[in-house]
Design a protein around this nucleic acid. Structure first.
Ligand SMILES: [Zn+2]
Ligand SMILES: [Zn+2]
Ligand SMILES: [Zn+2]
Ligand SMILES: [Zn+2]
Lengths: 146, 146
DNA sequence: AGCGAAAATGAGACACTGTATCATTATAAG
DNA sequence: CTTATAATGATACAGTGTCTCATTTTCGCT
């Protein structure tokens, strides 16, 4: 059983067919999915799972900081990223909309400093950079000199 | 004229009533707005500005990294944050959904290291922490022990 | 100031995403 | 197995964002 499913159970939620299918779809997609992709792939795997359950589960996973909603580059279609260990980091190419993930963030120190200074407790974070990937680095930014 | 409007002009875009009104609304809101708020406040200021222009302008400002779409805490209603200087940083309280901004990020070093290591060029970034604010720090996280 | 090419606009119809309700079903504890 | 309760699927609904196109506005140029 996936560690994410175990976290659901540990938090007091029931393990259902809908939840495990949806989580499986997100994990199989490699950590970046749009809600439309989730809807589509869940329907393909098990057409008896309703739309409402997909959205309910996405909300639940968001509350547990297992996923976080974000915007994939260049579109207003919403998406979700997996947050293993409570964090996620990527670079969005503003030219080709490719997403490049990276793992080492070194933000533990900043998190601890913020907890101290602002009297908060932090559970996770998302760090996004915007720019041009290695393939697009010589191309002009979209929107410049329109 | 707002520096953001000047950036629009410098990038070759025309300065129109719709664009300046929309940017003014976002700036006046203090840097965090939902699209619904923008629609509402723009309509109040100038009812002749159409819905489509609001969404078109939000897309344009996003492409120029003047704003970035993000999800305000606890809801799936999309929002936008201003990116002065190309970056923005905040903490989202998972209990009361308050957003706490902070300015010093110290991410220039990480950005430079990523540019070197991954051969990318970076224009900006967004850093979000999730947790409990000073008022909510003793309260249980929503979703735990449902 | 006036002209003209080109960009941007507003209107309105449209598609799609996400929400609410509720009767039915599945889960998990005992 | 039984039972309380959470979770579900279906459906109808509301709101967000998209598209097209005729009309208007901007702005470089004269
Ligand atoms: Zn690229
Ligand atoms: Zn991290
Ligand atoms: Zn709070
Ligand atoms: Zn920064």
């Amino acid at each position: 059983m996936s560690p994410h499913l175990e976290r659901l159970k540990a938090a007091g939620y029931k393990l259902t067919k809908a939840r495990s299918t949806i989580l499986h779809v997100i994990e199989a997609a490699g950590g970046h999915v749009t809600s439309a992709e989730v809807l589509e792939k869940v329907a393909a795997l098990n057409p008896s799972i309703g739309r409402a359950s997909v959205f309910r589960t996405l909300d639940l996973l968001t509350r547990l900081v297992i996923i976080r909603p974000t915007y994939p580059g260049g579109s207003t279609t919403p998406g979700y990223v997996l947050m293993p260990g409570g964090h996620h980091h990527h670079i969005i190419c503003m030219v080709c909309n490719r997403i490049i993930e990276f793992d080492d963030c070194g933000l533990e120190g900043m998190a601890a400093a913020l907890e101290e200074r602002l009297h908060v407790r932090l559970e996770g974070h998302l760090l996004e950079f915007y720019g041009r990937c290695d393939r697009c680095r010589e191309l002009p930014l979209p929107g410049s000199e329109a």
